[in-house]
Nucleic acid binder design. Sequence first.
DNA 1: GTCAATCATCTTGTATACAAAAACTCTCCC
DNA 2: GGGAGAGTTTTTGTATACAAGATGATTGAC
Lengths: 215, 215
Amino acid sequence: MNIRRANQIAKTLEQSVVAGEFRDGERLDELKLAEQFHVSRTPIREALQVLVTSGMAEQIPRRGVFIRQPGPVELMEMFETMAELEAVCVRLAATRMTDDDLDALAQANERCQQAINDDDPDRYYAENETFHQIIYRGSANRFLEKQARHLQSRLKAYRRIQLHFRGRLKQSMSEHSDILSALKAGDADRAAEVLRDHVAIQGEKFHQLVSSLNR
Amino acid sequence: MNIRRANQIAKTLEQSVVAGEFRDGERLDELKLAEQFHVSRTPIREALQVLVTSGMAEQIPRRGVFIRQPGPVELMEMFETMAELEAVCVRLAATRMTDDDLDALAQANERCQQAINDDDPDRYYAENETFHQIIYRGSANRFLEKQARHLQSRLKAYRRIQLHFRGRLKQSMSEHSDILSALKAGDADRAAEVLRDHVAIQGEKFHQLVSSLNR
DNA sequence: GTCAATCATCTTGTATACAAAAACTCTCCC
DNA sequence: GGGAGAGTTTTTGTATACAAGATGATTGAC
């Protein structure tokens, strides 16, 4: 329990940031965090370096480390990048996935549908993540897969927002099925196109929400 | 000069890693580095965290931080990812670039050609980087641009290897011109295809080299 | 001679100490 | 009352100290 405390702290902090527990621009007080985690400032500072390097916080010399939550513009950019990354993954996956992979994908899709039937949004989101991760894995490119997973987790909190739009879930499921059938047919281009739009629409829904809130 | 020494150290170390000054698996000795940089272990350890987080090194608890140079497989994966990322950038750029951007791109291409004429490979590589960066920028997606630049710099050392192949430089230039003309014509698909192959071939050349060395 | 166990040494991880810069406060002046 | 400035308090950045795990060496048993 007392090995590499700093790493655990970094993970915990990352989760807190992703979960939106900090406001944009909020300063991370080393002393407070040290007290909170019952450690000295040293492991806290190492954890903060991790946050800064992974882009979740900004460091201003002699001033401190500040949380950097992406604004609407950056979020749109991140969603667009995610959409393109996923499109790349699925295009590669179309020619590289094994039959077992395809089965696993179909099963994940089934579980998504069941979660909707049971009206269990949390489970839906978990299974939805799995569905996409199977596609990343299907690209047979570990590096690409890692990048995709990283961005996926970074956008996790914002992806839930599409929940607020009536009918989106049903449409999302239908897109999943389209992707699956395109993959089964070996139609890389169609799979890529559907998946790209499937992800990009989340960014657009988010945009709609933000601009409706601003009005 | 004595503000945030740790950051400077991190940058220096990153450059050394990218430049291939460390072997794969080499342990980064905190004491030696501390002595080398004339600081205590504290800023060194913060710098090491940065290396670990950005994936250039691996940390094994209670053992130390070890350089992780990508092997042939991972390098191929990185080149493939880079190729796809660039293809995405140029496809977006095809509809988003301004005329000024296109001019800048044409100029960068000119400078590449001149560097070849002058038989100045270093300058060629610098200008080549600029050429690609203008395309990243042209995607009008700062987040994507950042990702692309990051991967570009990570692959920097390995990209030079294509130099060893006779005629590659000339072909590379011709591909640049193709991309440029496709962009001018607004042909996103062709630009994307040419650029993808343009980058992917570097990975393949690297692969050829490695397997020829293994024989 | 080989292997294992114990002991010494080295290295990491964390805590604490201290210097310097930034932020804050209080006073003084207008 | 408002603002400038000196002094105080915080807070960051680095150095040092110390505890505990990992490594290596020496010794002893077989």
